[in-house]
Write a protein that binds this DNA or RNA. Structure first.
Lengths: 126, 126
DNA sequence: CTTTTTGTTATATCTATTATATAACAAATG
DNA sequence: CATTTGTTATATAATAGATATAACAAAAAG
């Protein structure tokens, strides 16, 4: 699974890493038990600091996506609980589209489309 | 329309104001042409600084939700264009739910439910 | 026309966040 | 034991968030 960093993005680097790993898990590319590169390895690959990667891993661990162990590196967790503010964030995002005049049906279709691109071909064990 | 500020939230104050106004527009409580309180007025009501409110209004203007004029104050705009990164933000949010094991159907139902709470009773002109 | 209100602009300060740079420590692997 | 790795600790720099004043200019109200 490839990760791309945009240093000039307004989204913090550690957040970019976090989001892409979350998406990798969602797509089924990162299955539970999958090992991720070590902090120092990832930092070297991206040419960024060790602590920036560490921050992303720490966040992912707090959110229940990863378990970080010594020497073994980070390992994808079987499951977690959805963040309590998830629905509030969804609400804000959907409100934004409604406020710009997008019909609710059109918004739903977009949700469906995005979900489809995330779940298509997600069964690598066949 | 009431706005609530949580000073201790990790979400910036100007973002809280922005989000609640956007939701107000989405719900139809703030119709195009509706005037909003002046920057100094809102700041006084919340007991916060003038520039914090100004930042929220500036953001809302850049996003096409408001038009800010002298003396008239901020006025809700008829419409705008959806931000280019909207779908990317939706993608990240939906991926988070999928990664935590929520089935796509369940996620869609939640989207539908949230949309319903935003669009119910949205026609004040009857 | 004068006064007042309002958005705008300009500094300045303070805190927190983001990112980097070193360094050292401790646990686990080979 | 030596190496790798996560962890912890400082330190620094840049940026963002919030506050505090002050002043300016446009527009409404008197």
């Amino acid at each position: 699974m490839l990760i791309f960093i945009e240093p000039e993005s307004e989204k913090p680097i550690y957040q970019q890493i976090r989001d892409q790993i979350v998406e990798g898990i969602a797509r089924g590319e990162l299955l539970p038990g999958t090992g991720l590169p070590s902090i120092r390895q990832l930092a070297a690959d991206f040419g960024i600091n060790l602590h920036t990667v560490n921050k992303a891993y720490e966040l992912l661990e707090r959110e229940g996506f990863l378990q970080v162990r010594r020497k073994t590196g980070a390992v994808v967790q079987p499951r977690g609980r959805l963040a309590e503010d998830w629905e509030a964030r969804l609400r804000t995002l959907l409100a934004e589209a409604l406020a710009q005049g997008l019909p609710a049906e059109e918004i739903l279709v977009r949700c469906q489309r995005v979900l489809a691109t995330l779940t298509e071909r997600e069964q690598p064990d066949r």
